[in-house]
Design a binder for these strands. Structure first.
Lengths: 211, 211
DNA sequence: AGAATAGTGTCTCTCAGACATTATTTG
DNA sequence: CAAATAATGTCTGAGAGACACTATTCT
């Protein structure tokens, strides 16, 4: 029994007021994460990109290796090792998905194949964790966004309300975004649009347990 | 050309005043990380344990999956995917190593095969990082240790001097160690021995980038 | 007595977190 | 002018970081 090597990708996107994951139908009511077998001449990362888009690398896509699952019992009847990636794509960059994959809300997930539920919950933990010390949140937003939208993104991912004035003060002091010349009109007073400064320091020093 | 799957392990230990890594001789002056091919009925983790000790799982050993390297070009002439683990073992738990592996100081590494230097430097980054928000430092010390030894461990790994009073205050307030009834006599005044409290909260909340 | 290491307390300054009102636009 | 959303500043308390001397043991 040879060992089969493939990749899975947990792709997050933000729609309205919930996080969503891209899933492919499997059998019955069971869904699965996008998956691809790794070809002999292909890197793991490009296999991961190929798993959810034949359009391959949009350079926009945030992709990061998450974990490799390789328990002999994880899939009945075969020995498969899966390198799992997680990806973030902004709502406006969602193209036409191939096959019959669908976006599903994280809070209303259907039944999932094998250990895919575990993969998703680990990816979510990692996303939340990264949000606390890096600027990964911008990967889910369009190029220009208002401060309210940004705060909303954080609130959805973290699952808690944040204080508006503290949020604005800290993110502006951090210097990782800058105002654009544009404003967005909507229901009330128009909002200043900001963009991410890619040259900004992307990580903040974690608080040490010991000095 | 089939894809070969194996594991490598970056094993750290602390000797005297330097971090060391366990290496196996390869060819000429070239050394390599302990490696093992993954058997069809074996988990990745037990393969990793098997890579550096046929005595397999001492339950003591801290083992964590690090990253999976799978670039098609990383090893000339074959396609090998390596799942890399990193391990920490205390000085007093070093048994007799099999084969002709040797402990080498991190600051005086010999030439390394393939991408193994990259694996080690990534493992070190992760170790330093984890040290800042978790209690992983104890994995390199014997069961009982003095506060000076603990501080020394931190200083070696982080590569910087720490303030004695701040260190003691914070680690004691954190409640993750407790005094034992023993003291250690040495050159000057005997020191109180402490032990790690496994029931303690092992992680400290990271400082958020945003509130 | 001297050498060596263990052990201890205070102050300052920064920053996280709580909190309510005014400003601008549209219909 | 009413409804909707944007924008803004202050105070307090906790904790990080800097800093120097006393205590105990051994030879």
């Amino acid at each position: 029994m040879p060992i089969e090597l493939n990749v899975n990708v947990v792709i997050f996107s933000l729609c309205e007021d919930a996080l969503q994951v891209l899933l492919a139908p499997k059998a019955g009511q069971i869904w699965a994460l996008p998956e691809k077998s790794v070809a002999a001449d292909e890197s793991l990362e490009s296999a991961a990109l190929g798993a959810f888009s034949r359009l391959a690398h949009s350079p926009e896509i945030y992709l990061e290796q998450l974990y490799t699952y390789g328990d002999p019992e994880r899939i009945p009847g075969q020995r498969a090792v899966s390198v799992v990636y997680f990806a973030l794509i902004p709502l406006d960059a969602r193209g036409a998905q191939l096959e019959n994959m669908q976006w599903q809300r994280l809070d209303k997930l259907p039944g999932l194949a094998y250990d895919h539920a575990e993969m998703i919950s680990y990816a979510l933990r990692r996303l939340r964790y990264k949000l606390e010390y890096s600027a990964v949140g911008f990967e889910l937003l369009p190029d220009e966004f208002t401060l309210s939208e940004l705060q909303h993104t954080y609130e959805i991912i973290l699952g808690e309300k944040l204080d508006k004035r503290n949020f604005r003060r800290r993110i502006l002091e951090a210097g990782i975004i800058e105002a654009t010349p544009h404003r967005r009109s909507g229901d009330g007073r128009p909002a200043q649009l900001y963009r991410y400064r890619p040259d900004a320091v992307a990580e903040v020093k974690a608080r040490r347990l010991f000095p």
